[in-house]
């Protein structure tokens, strides 16, 4: 695409992560442009979440480079990532179960009164507003999120990620627990955010969603990047082939494919 002439919003170069002896992420390179959705797909345990957690500050990389707007950055913890405008919807949601939805939405970024105390009422009001956009039937603003349904919890996690004007959004299986209506809402939301120029990494096992939403598709297998292809250059069978067999499509232009040997 024409996107290649611009500076990428995110560029993760030659990232390695290992847990003990396991190479969870092995020399992966992936890029993201403003206003672009990159679908990140692969089988279970391929290393998708791990790669994205490096970007969100949850895991440290063993080696490799991260560039934001073309400049190298150091991300040591989630605070660093948030400061760079990176927001994440984790596969495990990462909610504090014993506090309510507003407290979760604003966790780490509470609204304070001018007396320096928690402004719970303002946070609840803001939460009602965001949730109205995401999941209009949402109830239970005062109950611990532990007692919400799986889908409601997911809505809270999504609300938290979009509320703070992220520039880069990581969505790890954002609709896994959602009903059809709520899933449609999230799909619209992704299109809307894209229009606003936000870059989105979308991890999903639902290939139809990925084809519907993504501009490019990156495929991982066994910790390695099989390659990145343009959505319009491939069909679903070719992507399935990449996921399952690691075979590259013959006609499409593939970038960032795995190369042997550490730099």
């Amino acid at each position: 695409m024409a996107a290649d002439s611009r500076t990428p919003l995110v560029e993760m170069r030659n990232i390695y992560v290992s847990f003990g002896g396991v190479h969870a992420v092995d020399n992966c390179t992936i890029t993201l442009y403003p206003g672009e959705v990159v679908g990140l797909v692969g089988g279970n345990g391929a290393g998708k979440s791990t790669l994205m957690k490096v970007l969100s500050g949850a895991y440290r990389k063993d080696s490799g480079e991260i560039l934001i707007d073309g400049k190298p950055v150091a991300i040591h913890n989630p605070r660093d990532a948030k400061a760079l405008g990176i927001e994440t919807i984790y596969q495990t949601l990462a909610l504090a179960d014993n506090v309510d939805a507003p407290a979760n939405l604003f966790l780490g970024r509470e609204v304070m009164t001018r007396w320096g105390t928690l402004h719970d009422v303002a946070m609840e009001a803001a939460t009602r507003k965001v949730m109205g956009r995401l999941n209009p039937h949402f109830k239970g603003f005062k109950t611990p999120v532990k007692s919400l349904s799986g889908g409601q919890r997911q809505s809270v996690a999504i609300a938290r990620a979009i509320h703070f004007n992220a520039r880069i959004l990581i969505m790890d299986e954002p609709t896994a627990a959602l009903g059809p209506a709520e899933t449609a809402q999230v799909r619209d939301l992704i299109k809307q955010l894209k229009k606003e120029g936000i870059g989105i990494f979308l991890i999903s096992h639902e290939l139809r969603d990925v084809f519907d939403l993504a501009d490019r598709i990156s495929v991982m297998k066994n910790g390695r990047m099989v390659g990145t292809v343009d959505r319009h250059d491939v069909d679903m069978d070719e992507v399935l082939g990449m996921i399952i067999g690691g075979t590259l499509p013959k006609t499409a232009n593939v970038t960032n494919a795995y190369v042997e040997a550490r730099p």
């Binding site: 504090a96 179960d97 014993n98």
Partner: peptide
């Protein structure tokens, strides 16, 4: 415990330490 950031973080950490860390809390 109930009206300050510190108190909120103590409870959030107690509920889910990992979530508190990922939420950017020190």
């Amino acid at each position: 415990a109930t009206r300050t950031r510190f108190g909120r973080y103590v409870f959030a950490f107690g509920g889910n330490p990992e979530a508190a860390e990922l939420g950017g809390i020190n």
